[in-house]
Each structure stands twice: as structure tokens, then as C-alpha cells.
Design a binder for these strands. Sequence first.
DNA 1: CTAATGTCTCTAGCAACTATAGCTTCAAGG
DNA 2: CCTTGAAGCTATAGTTGCTAGAGACATTAG
Lengths: 146, 146
Amino acid sequence: MLTIGKLGESAGVKVPTIRYYEQIGLLPEAERSAGNQRLYGRKSQERLAFIRHARDLGFTLEAIRDLLSLSDRPDQSCAAADAIAKAQLAEVESRLARLTALKAELERMVVQCAGGSIADCRVIEVLSDHSLCATDHRHPESEVPS
Amino acid sequence: MLTIGKLGESAGVKVPTIRYYEQIGLLPEAERSAGNQRLYGRKSQERLAFIRHARDLGFTLEAIRDLLSLSDRPDQSCAAADAIAKAQLAEVESRLARLTALKAELERMVVQCAGGSIADCRVIEVLSDHSLCATDHRHPESEVPS
DNA sequence: CTAATGTCTCTAGCAACTATAGCTTCAAGG
DNA sequence: CCTTGAAGCTATAGTTGCTAGAGACATTAG
């Protein structure tokens, strides 16, 4: 049995994050020692590793919640899991496309900066006037990190 | 003079967002009409457009605050503005690199899913075990949206 | 045995908004 | 002139995924 600190270390997750996952129900309530400290076994370790890995791949906690409940029912079809992964892939692809456009615009901006005074600064100028932009990099809709 | 609604429409920014920007000091306190409604002139319109455009390019509100205060002093060197833009570019590039790795991993995951049951699901399996991954897509450090 | 570290709960804070509630003001139609 | 509906006002709370702090108890190394 591991203490919360050891568990966190083993999974690369900070201690308060583990408690947070328990609080929001992603992890079940942990067993407690005589002194009221949380204790974890192998199953918890695997579950936390799963969560961590999915987070690293950019899945939201909501998606992870779904994936976990799917993985708890191994006899069912994996269509739902597949759909979640595909949605995440689509999300990543759309963010990639947007970031690529942003990168081009920022590069243009930075390259054109001649290093004079603010009055001639290309950076400020471009920011002031979207029509100076080459690409259309408007915020399409919702966006989430990672 | 524009009402807050018209201003928002003209800049593509929602009304509560404008009030929020005022609240955090990104926009100055607006003039008020006899009936206590906010009124905006051309300068506010330009300032808001600047903010919106910079947000679209992924700059944080903090960076925008700096850029705005720079643009208020047109006689100074543009080195600071250049540095902010370069930092943003670096940020975007690092996020691009990470997302590219994620995309590859997710594609592998999705392609390998044969559509059977959860027990054989490649998606769940890969999430359970990072060693099945081709790339090292661990969370490097801080991350911000956009 | 003591001191340092770890853990406990609870609360508040971060970015950058978004949503809700309950009010007032404004513009247009009858 | 009056009403009605949209738009505006303030203030507060919620969102996501944590992170940080306070103050108390548990455990472990020396």
C-alpha cells in the first residue's frame, strides 16, 4: 500500500491533484490508515496512470470519466471509446491548423520588425489592424488548452 | 458614440467581455450617458480591436496589457514589443510541436482500433500503458490555451 | 524524544471569460 | 402618451484543471 505522496511520485501527479481527482469522483474514495491517511493499492495506481496518460494526450477530465467507465465494462463494444478518441483527434487537428496560421502570422510580424521606435513598430501596427494580416486567424469557437 | 452593444458588434467581442476588460483595467472606464449607460468613441473602438486581434493571435491579457502601454509611448524603442511577440511565437511553436506529437499518437490509437469489444480496445489499452506509445508526449511544463 | 517531513481539511486563487438574477433605461409602435 | 421588448446596469457565481495557503495531526529519521 502506498501513501498519497508515493502514489503521486509513481504516477507523476502532484498530491493535491490526486485529492482533487478523488473529490470530483475520478478516483474512488481511498482507504484510510489508522491515522486517517489515504492508502492506495495497485488498482489505484493503474487508474491514476490511465488518467495521467489521457491528460497528457489532451483528453478533458469529462472524456476521461467516460473512458474510465467504459474500461470498467470490458465486454461492451469499443465504439464509444473509439468515438471519444476520434473526437479528441479532431480537436487536436483543428487546434494544429489554427496554431499553424498563428505561427505564420507571428513570424511575419517579428521578421518585419526593423527594431526602430514604437511609432514604426510592425508588431504594434499589425496588431492594430487585422487587414495587414495574411491569414484569417479569427477565433473559430470554443477552445481548450493542451 | 456607440453603446456597448454596438461596440461589441463592431469588434466581434461580447458585451460582458467588454465590461470585464474595463473591470480589469484593460479598457479605461467608459463615459456614461445621462441614463448611466456606457458610451464609446473611436479610440475605444481601436483599443478594443487591438485587444481582440492580439487575443486572436494567442497573446495573454497580461501581454496585451504590456503591448498597449507600449503603444501609448510611440517614441520609445520597439524592442520590448518585439520581445513580447517573439515570446509568443516561441510559445506557439512549442505548443505546435507538442500537438503534432499528440496527433500522431491519437492517430495510431484510432487506426489500430479494430472495433471489437472494450477488452481488446486499442484505445483503452494504449491509455492504460504509456510504454505502448511511439512518442514521448509527456506534459513538459506550463500550458496556456489558444 | 524531538524535529522534520508528510498528510489532513478547508478555503481561496489562477486565466479569461460566461451565465444568472433582478433591476433600469431606451427606442419604436400603437 | 404609453406600453412593450430589447438592451443596459450591477453584483455574484460558475467554468476547467488544477495550485497555494493556513493550521492541525501523523509518521519517521536520528
